[in-house]
Design a protein around this nucleic acid. Sequence first.
DNA 1: GCCCAGGTGGGTA
DNA 2: TACCCACATGGG
Length: 227
Amino acid sequence: MVRPGLGEIVSRLLDHFGPQEWWPAKTPFEVMLGAVLTQNTAWRNVELAIRNLRKAGALNPSSLASLPQYRIKELIRPTGYFHQKARKLRTLLEWFIERYDGSIEQLRKLDQQQLRGELLSLWGIGPETADSILLYALSFPAFVVDAYTIRVLVRHDLVPSDAGYDEVQRLASRQLPADEKYLNEAHALFVAVGKKYCKRKQPLCENCPLKALLSPEGGYHSESEKN
DNA sequence: GCCCAGGTGGGTA
DNA sequence: TACCCACATGGG
């Protein structure tokens, strides 16, 4: 059986779920904060924290930086891990202000890989958070891999069960267009299908919209081919 | 009550 | 390198 490419999968998901339009109307800075706050956290809790930050007038670099750490912790408390996340926000903020004057435009002028490396060097910024910032805040064509993405691909034998972040991202870079709007939707669609059909407990996704695409014969997992 | 959520860093073998 | 664990709140 021939494995479908990621492009076919994204097309199928788009047909099924429609455009997700993540982070469409937010400011880039707000998205940067959200990328940190959503680490292992439901998005609705992030919205509570963002609301608090907005009420406090702290949704811009200088205002947020002027707040004492205990105050930031209070405001972001709904996202959990607030001690750690307050430190992560402070680290990101200091880098952004001291090195780039708090200017999104300056970040957008940088080379994507160089910027990614800088983000990864910051305490609290891992690959998913870095790529989320690149894609959703700065409009670079980065494919964001998350737990859902890996789970969906593993369950459909498109990557090995021990596949890690970089391996999945390389696969995506080979098979998907390096287009920011496309990759924005693609990641959101993997989250959509994962949330609904590929939760940790569910062994197989009986009603998954990918099922027909992946197994015309009705069998789900066949001998996988190496990519 | 229990499980999970748009991860990351640190410690140990 | 490869696990294992802490981090913490809010909703189903």
